[in-house]
Amino acid sequence: MKGLTTLCYIEKDGQYLMLHRTKKEHDINKDKWIGIGGHFEVDESPDECLRREVFEETGCTLGSCTLRGIVTFVSDGRTPGAGVTEYMFLYTAEDLQGEPADCDEGELIWVDKEECPRLNVWEGDKIFFRLLNTHPEFFSLKLVYNGGDRLMYAALDGRPLEL
């Protein structure tokens, strides 16, 4: 199965707006901290999906944003071809119009950028944070998980990364 998603790290005053996913029962991201985004709807472009998701999750309008990379997630990497593949368009933004409102998926909190990797995040998200700070060019990142929380393989622009 394949999926298309977006994710955005919205920055203000040295902080990212993070969503602590606590409210949905059957949520693959339950208790994790993530950026803002979600799944494409029919016929949406990545930008349209992102803007809709930002509005749905925050009640705010997203101004300018920058597409920073494409992330390929493979789940259940123990058995090639047996898992789920997801392609995520990763954005950053600094132009959020309005004040974030309550979210039905969890709690929205501004978190210092340096603290984000220490939160309960996916292992691959720690790579995102590093790349967003050190890799100014557009990138392609592949992350292979074991079907759970364990990151088994990562590659940046087609070259394996040391985990």
Rank of each mutant, 00 (worst) to 15 (best):
D102Y: 11
T6E: 00
Y153M: 13
E25W: 04
I36V: 11
E137G: 13
G98P: 04
M1L: 05
Y9M: 09
S64H: 12
F73K: 06
G83S: 03
V42Q: 08
H20I: 01
K12C: 06
V111I: 15
L67G: 03
K32W: 02
Y91E: 05
Y16M: 12
Y9T: 08
D125R: 14
M152A: 09
D13Q: 12
F139Y: 13
L141C: 04
L163A: 10
E107V: 15
N133A: 15
H135G: 02
F89G: 01
T85A: 08
K23T: 07
N146V: 02
L163H: 13
T66F: 03
L151I: 06
G77F: 04
I70S: 07
K113E: 08
Y16R: 06
A101W: 01
L151G: 10
W122R: 14
L62I: 01
F139P: 05
I34L: 14
R68I: 05
R130A: 02
L131S: 10
P80E: 06
E94R: 15
E114F: 04
G14F: 08
G148C: 04
K2A: 07
L4Y: 13
C116N: 08
L50F: 03
A93R: 00
H135S: 06
G106T: 13
D95C: 03
L17P: 07
D76R: 14
F129Q: 14
D27A: 15
L156V: 11
W122D: 13
T61F: 01
W110Q: 09
G124F: 04
G35Y: 03
T66G: 00
H26C: 07
E107Q: 13
Y145R: 07
Y16S: 07
Y153K: 14
E114H: 12
G38R: 06
N146T: 01
P100Y: 05
L161K: 05
L50Y: 00
G81A: 09
Y153T: 09
L161W: 04
G77W: 02
M18C: 12
I127V: 12
T22G: 03
T72Q: 13
M152N: 13
L108I: 04
F138R: 14
I10E: 06
E162N: 10
R118A: 11
D112C: 05
S64T: 12
G147R: 01
C8K: 02
K2G: 00
R150M: 09
T66H: 02
V144A: 06
D112S: 12
F129T: 03
E162P: 01
T134M: 06
E137Q: 15
N120F: 07
W110D: 01
D112H: 07
R21Y: 02
V144Q: 08
D157F: 10
F129Y: 15
G148H: 06
P136T: 14
E105K: 15
K23P: 02
K113Y: 05
D31L: 05
G3W: 10
L62A: 02
G148E: 10
L132N: 07
E162R: 12
